[in-house]
Design a protein around this nucleic acid. Structure first.
Lengths: 254, 254
DNA sequence: CGGTTGTTTGAGGACGTTCAAGTACTGTGG
DNA sequence: CCACAGTACTTGAACGTCCTCAAACAACCG
């Protein structure tokens, strides 16, 4: 752990600008502020690993974090003892990015609320400023503040939609179609016309998120060229959004 | 729609036995009871279709319902009641089961809370008794009852876990492994020993749920035989659970 | 008994992965 | 500024998985 610090004024401002914490009464906010701390984490940092118990709610004040599921689990760990960051996994290291959180998002509130171990690991993929709020504080807020509970439910509802949409994509669209659909999400939801797009992550990460190999992502990009997509580096240009939408069988259901 | 009726005593009892509604004050319960109704729906009935706005929260008092995502326009082709759209009516009528809800579950509370159109359709896969609660009533409860908001958040958190687990399976396990993992969920969470299992749905449905073709499910069942799985009809027998667990790289994270 | 439906099996093909090699794009130090 | 190394990305070929289509079974029901 590095660059640790208590919560300052500007971080608190960032917090209360989020709907989740906006309506929290002063007393609860004091609780949060006094027991939480701030960390700056560089790319590749691990916030927590799959299997650990949920100690903190991680609020991303700035940056980007990926939730990563891996299929190799440490050999037969009977009780949830606290292994630390020095552990290295076994040979086959297959892993997949399940979700990507950005500024203003909150990472795995589910595990925190349910007081269960994390089902996945969290890895920083762009330099990040994070507020660590103790799980107990969050659960206290859930139990004692109706507004917080309400906002939590709404946030989880939105995330449920994101996940089920992704699951739908995964089950009945090809890799190339998923890529197209992803590009469309970067086009601000417009349904026709030209679009200039900046992809916010490297190919390997994007491939893992879309559920395909990096090599195949390359080929998928090539396959989109005839549909009117020019790519160079992280920049992409879509000639006609409607064409890509048709190609991906995209619906309007957000 | 058939067998419609207002909510009776026994249905109300079923409702308040669910954590979601258990703590609701009498006034709110009256609201719920007076504005809701009960329906019995047979297999293959459609509760709602992808794209419709969320009018009701569907509470499953008994039975089983599948959430189905489809990539083309939602038109069920049981009867040739053809609606030819201007869109290309693509030959492939692909669809996939995203989640399956059973007795005591609630269907797509996310769309209801957010007041957004359904992202998927709901199809009855086993005769079902359902309470239809108007969306406005649910949203009213969310806004005005802290306990309800809390329970909603917890329920959504559990569902988030289910979905992300499924997404993980989908992204980094083979079809056969997913099948094995599914059989394990039917073994009451035991981690070793023998198990006798009754599969609660037909092959086609199960295949769609596991994200594979019915044909491939057959082959996957055959592939599990060497690992100690005997199947006949809907009955299955696992010789040694631990062996399947190893085969599927199953972790303990629920 | 034929008809209907659900499941299995086989062959061919589409899609995706892996390994390997090649190319383009960083940055660093000379 | 270039040479260089290191990394990221692309491309190609071989292979495996999964899907599709078609046919063969099996089970159930009139």
């Amino acid at each position: 752990m590095k660059d640790s610090g208590t919560m300052d004024r500007s971080s608190l401002d960032s917090l209360i600008s989020m709907p989740l914490f906006a309506a929290l009464p002063a007393a609860a906010l004091d609780q949060v502020m006094s027991q939480s701390f701030i960390q700056y984490q560089p790319t590749e940092a691990i916030l927590f690993e799959q299997g650990q118990s949920a100690q903190f709610l991680h609020v991303i004040l700035a940056g980007r974090v990926a939730l990563v599921g891996s299929s190799t689990n440490p050999h037969h760990s009977d009780h949830p003892a606290d292994h630390n960051e020095t552990e290295q996994a076994t040979a086959t290291d297959r892993e997949a990015i399940i979700e990507i959180f950005g500024t203003g998002d909150v990472v795995t509130i589910a595990a925190v609320l349910l007081n269960l171990p994390y089902m996945m690991s969290a890895r920083v993929i762009a330099p990040t400023r994070i507020a660590y709020i103790p799980a107990a504080v969050i659960r206290y807020c859930l139990d004692n503040d109706a507004g917080f509970a309400r906002e939590t439910a709404l946030m989880l509802a939105r995330h449920w939609r994101l996940l089920s949409r992704q699951l739908k994509d995964q089950k009945l669209r090809s890799g190339t179609q998923r890529l197209g659909a992803y590009l469309l999400t970067l086009s601000d939801g417009r349904t026709s016309g030209r679009a200039e797009i900046e992809m916010p992550m490297d190919r390997r990460t994007l491939a893992s998120w879309l559920g395909m190999s990096a090599e195949n992502l390359s080929r998928a990009l090539a396959q989109l060229k005839p549909v009117g997509v020019q790519v160079s580096g992280r920049h992409a240009q879509i000639d006609e959004i409607a064409r890509i939408r048709a190609f991906c069988l995209e619906d309007d259901l957000r």
